[in-house]
């Protein structure tokens, strides 16, 4: 997978968001990605960059969805296997995988996903609350749901990705 999209490139692809006076119809950009056959997204403003997989260093005493840490230009970047984090089957990281580097407040970390698929302009009318779903574990990790035509895309709640201290101790 050579999908090395950078966030800098993204606005160029979606030039609609330039209303200078904060128009009523302001849209937000989302980056969508796939884990197996499911599509998820995060707000593009949280995204720092997208990069290919490189071997991670394992961390002791850490939950199974924490793949390890990699060197991102001198920063120690924890990598979360989003699939495992969402309670799906753990990924086996390989060259095919992609890491979406995101920032939540002061913390920067990577989400291991299968592939990045799209950048979407989403209007307020396209955003829904998270509906009741079968998997309650998955639900708690979703922030909102975006409905575009036939597609239904769950937005990942990034602030819940990094384990809390308690979660780590339980692991």
């Amino acid at each position: 997978m050579t999908d090395e999209t950078t966030p800098e490139a993204a606005p160029a692809a979606a030039p609609t968001k330039v209303a200078p006076t904060g128009a009523v119809t302001a849209t937000e950009e989302y980056i969508t990605f796939r884990i197996r056959d499911q599509e998820f997204c995060v707000e593009i403003t949280s995204t720092r960059e997208i990069r290919g997989w490189s071997n991670a260093t394992r961390l002791p005493h850490s939950p199974d969805y924490l793949v390890g840490v990699i060197n991102l230009r001198g920063t120690i970047l924890p990598i979360i296997d989003l699939s495992a984090r969402l309670g799906l089957e753990p990924s086996e990281p390989s060259e095919r995988h992609v890491i979406i580097v995101v920032q939540v407040e002061e913390k920067i970390f990577g989400l291991l996903v299968d592939a990045v698929s799209d950048i979407l302009d989403v209007g307020p009318d396209q955003i829904r609350q998270v509906p009741e779903m079968n998997s309650s574990q998955a639900k708690e990790f979703f922030k909102r749901v975006i409905v575009i035509e036939e597609r239904i895309i769950c937005e990942v709640a990034l602030d819940l990705m990094i384990p809390t201290q308690e979660a780590q101790q339980a692991a």
């Binding site: 005493h61 920063t75 120690i76 920067i108």
Partner: peptide
């Protein structure tokens, strides 16, 4: 390199470093 800045403290580990091969070592 601090592990806490992007993650959290891990017992038994003081910090991390980056080796000549670019890999992280604890």
């Amino acid at each position: 390199k601090s592990l806490e800045s992007n993650y959290q403290r891990i017992s038994g580990i003081a910090a991390a470093t980056i080796l000549g091969n670019g890999r992280i070592a604890l």
